[in-house]
Structure formats: structure tokens, C-alpha cells
């Protein structure tokens, strides 16, 4: 385990006991994520991406192996609010305004009103939602709602973001736009980000490391390093380096699938 490793798992195993018998969701996951890395988890449906993210977030408990987050157990890390979690859906509370939704975790943390307001304003600006404080979620488009949910995760000021297909439900134009914004945010703050996606271009565009997973049982097929430099305009997706890595990921996915 290196000194600046933020998430470290070794031989992680997770079996769900269901009515149809056990489901081996994670098998022998050994992974090291260092501070400031942008790591994408990619793989076919059911390969355990969400489950792995939930284990890191202490929403699911492994049945074998070890995992540390910031050197402590995921449970302790959660209590210290080490991460912000972004779900596939925006999961905003419909009865709260956008500002109150972003302020929700801050209320739970017990911050005073002034501090809350300051952080809400700051993070809504960060995701380009200044001026929408008083709107209710249904008054915003899907992309804006998802941005609000990212602002909500950032408001906690975590060193780590766990994102489960945050842009999966959005159209490609909005998605591109949010990818650029997310990358900017990451470049500015150098938070550690673990990002689940189904999209190869998205993974290659965003990540410094791509974890290719394969299903039944969910395991890591290959880890691909991927660094296109800190400054990446969308056009980087037409460069040979980009296409080479994308090709490598595609091969990995195909090979992982060929097992069954």
C-alpha cells in the first residue's frame, strides 16, 4: 500500500444471498486508488460496478477481503464524511428548493445558516446554477437536476467523489458539456474521483485510470492507464492517443465478456 493511497482493497469479495441463491457480485477485487486520481469503472451490466462503489461508500458490506478508505474502514470514513456520492438519478427531494437540496447535507452536518448559505451559493455557481436557488427540482431539466446533485455532493467539501453513472440518463450534448465541466472541476481541485460509466469515450476522456470489469462473478479484468494531460478539450477525442486507449478498453471489454 503506497503512502498516498486513498482507497485500497485487497481480495475483496461480496456475495449477495438472494432467494434464487447466492449472487457473486464481487470477486477478488484488488485495487489501489491514489490521491487525486480520476478512476473510471467500466464494464457490462451486472459486473458489480455499483456494488464496488457502494462498498467504498459503506452502503454495502463485503463478505471477504479487506478495504480501507483514507487508511481507515469505510464505516469510519463515512462517519468522517470523507466522500460525496452522486447517484445515477439526481435524487433531489421534491419538496425542497434547489438551494435547500444543496444545503441538505450541511444541515445534517449541523453547520450554521451563514456557512450553509455561503457554501450553497459557491457550489451552485460552480455547476452553473446560480439564479436557480428558489426553483423546485421539477422546474429544472434533467441535466440541471444532475448538476444540482453534484453541487450537493461538493458542498460537503469532500476530498473524494464517488459517482455512479451520473450522466447516464442524459443526452449526448448535455453529457459532453458536463464532462468538460467535471474535468475542469477535477483539474482545479484535484479531488479523487471514482466514476462508474458505460461509455468508453467518457471513460477515456475523463480518467487517469480505467478499470475494466467483467461479470459473473464481478471481477477486474484489466487496469488501463490513461493520461491525456490536464488540459483536455473535447477535440482530444479525435487524437490518435485517445483512439488507441479507447481501442484498448474495447478489446478489454470484449475479452472480459468472452469468458462466458
Amino acid at each position: 500500500m503506497s503512502g498516498n493511497s486513498v482507497i485500497s482493497t485487497s481480495a475483496l469479495d461480496l456475495v449477495f444471498e438472494t432467494n434464487d441463491g447466492p449472487v457473486h457480485a464481487l470477486s477478488d477485487i484488488t485495487l489501489d486508488i491514489r490521491k487525486g486520481e480520476f478512476v473510471s469503472l467500466i464494464g457490462p451490466s451486472g459486473c458489480g460496478k455499483t456494488t464496488l462503489l457502494r462498498v467504498i461508500a459503506d452502503l454495502e458490506h463485503p463478505t471477504g477481503g479487506t478495504i480501507t478508505v483514507n487508511g481507515i474502514s469505510p464505516h469510519e470514513a463515512r462517519l468522517k464524511r470523507a466522500y460525496g456520492y452522486v447517484f445515477q438519478a439526481a435524487a433531489l427531494f421534491p419538496w425542497r428548493t434547489i438551494a435547500d437540496n444543496v444545503g441538505l447535507p450541511l444541515e445534517v452536518m449541523g453547520l450554521d445558516r451563514a456557512e450553509r448559505d455561503a457554501r450553497v451559493t459557491e457550489n451552485l455557481e460552480l455547476v452553473d446554477l446560480a439564479g436557480f436557488e428558489k426553483k423546485f427540482p421539477w422546474q429544472l431539466s434533467g441535466g440541471m437536476q444532475q448538476r444540482a446533485s453534484i453541487a450537493r455532493a461538493l458542498a460537503v467539501q469532500p476530498d473524494m467523489l464517488l459517482m455512479d453513472e451520473p450522466f447516464g440518463a442524459l443526452d449526448e450534448i448535455v453529457r459532453d458539456h458536463l464532462n468538460v465541466q467535471l474535468l475542469k472541476l477535477w483539474a482545479a481541485t484535484h479531488k479523487t474521483i471514482v466514476f462508474v460509466t458505460h461509455s468508453i469515450p467518457e471513460a477515456v476522456f475523463l480518467s487517469t485510470k480505467i478499470v475494466v470489469m467483467s461479470p459473473r462473478p464481478g471481477r477486474i479484468h484489466e487496469v488501463i492507464d490513461c493520461d491525456l494531460g490536464d488540459d483536455r478539450p473535447l477535440e482530444v477525442r479525435e487524437t490518435p492517443e485517445f483512439l488507441k486507449i479507447a481501442h484498448q478498453v474495447r478489446e478489454g471489454l470484449a475479452a472480459g465478456h468472452a469468458y462466458d
Binding site: 461508500a57 452502503l59 463515512r78 462517519l79 464524511r81 466522500y83 460525496g84 456520492y85 447517484f87 438519478a89 435524487a91 427531494f93 419538496w95 441538505l104 447535507p105 444541515e107 445534517v108 452536518m109 460537503v156
Partner: peptide, 26 residues
Amino acid sequence: PETMHMDLMHTYSANRSQTFWKLRWP
């Protein structure tokens, strides 16, 4: 409340009374 909303409160390490007043009750 949806599972996702309950999970969200869980990631904030919200206690029972916070989960009650901020999520279950509304």
C-alpha cells in the same frame, strides 16, 4: 421514501431523527 433517498441520508451519516424530520416526515 425511495431507497436512493434513504441511501443518500446514510452517506451523510444522518442519525435517525435527522432522517425522520428531513426525509420520512415530508
